[in-house]
C-alpha cells in the first residue's frame, strides 16, 4: 500500500507519494476503493468487461478530482467497480486515459459520494504527491 488514510471530522481522505503521476492516480483509485467498500470489497477475480475512458481538466487538481468522481459515476450508474489496469496522465494539457475492467458492485451502498477540493494537494516535485478528501 503506497498510500495512507487521513482522518477528517466528518469524512476521510488519503495521501500518496509515488515515482510517477500515473502511479499516484492508481493509488488514488485503490484508496477510493478501500474507503468506499472497506478492506474486503469483494471477489474481483471474476472476469469483468474491459472499459476505457478519457478525461481532461483545467489543471492537475481538477483532473485528480474528476478521476475519482468518474469512478463514482461508473459505480452509481452501472453498479460496477472500475478496476484500473493502466492509467496515462499528462499535465500539459491536463488529461488522463484509463483502461481497466469493471466488476459487479452487487447492490452495495457506496459510502464515498464525491472527491472534493477541500485540502486537495497535487505536487509533481520532488516526487509526485496527492492528498485528497472524500465526501462520505
Amino acid at each position: 500500500m503506497a498510500w495512507k488514510i487521513l482522518d477528517h471530522t466528518a469524512d476521510a481522505g488519503f495521501e500518496a507519494e509515488a515515482d510517477t503521476l500515473a502511479e499516484i492516480f492508481l493509488d488514488a483509485a485503490e484508496a477510493f476503493l478501500f474507503i468506499a467498500a472497506g478492506p474486503a470489497p469483494g471477489d474481483f477475480s471474476e472476469t469483468g468487461e474491459f472499459h476505457t475512458f478519457f478525461l481532461s481538466a483545467v489543471d492537475g487538481e481538477e483532473l485528480a478530482v474528476s478521476w475519482i468522481n468518474e469512478l463514482i459515476f461508473i459505480a452509481e450508474t452501472r453498479s460496477e467497480w472500475f478496476l484500473p489496469l493502466q492509467v496515462r496522465v499528462s499535465l500539459s494539457p491536463p488529461s488522463l486515459s484509463a483502461r481497466g475492467k469493471t466488476v459487479a458492485l452487487k447492490g452495495r451502498a457506496l459510502s464515498v459520494k464525491a472527491a472534493t477540493y477541500g485540502g486537495l494537494q497535487l505536487r509533481t516535485s520532488p516526487r509526485p504527491f496527492l492528498r485528497m478528501y472524500f465526501d462520505l
Binding site: 478530482v65 459515476f73 459520494k113 464525491a114 472534493t116 477540493y117 477541500g118
Partner: peptide
C-alpha cells in the same frame, strides 16, 4: 443522493473557471 453531488461537482468546475472573470479570489478552492 448522487444527483445532488453531481450538481455540486459540476458547478464547482463552472464557478472555478468563472471567478477570474469577476475578479474573485478565494482562500479555499472549495
Amino acid at each position: 443522493r448522487g444527483l445532488g453531488h453531481q450538481v455540486c461537482d459540476d458547478y464547482l468546475k463552472v464557478m472555478g473557471r468563472a471567478m477570474s472573470k469577476y475578479g474573485i479570489a478565494v482562500p479555499d478552492r472549495q
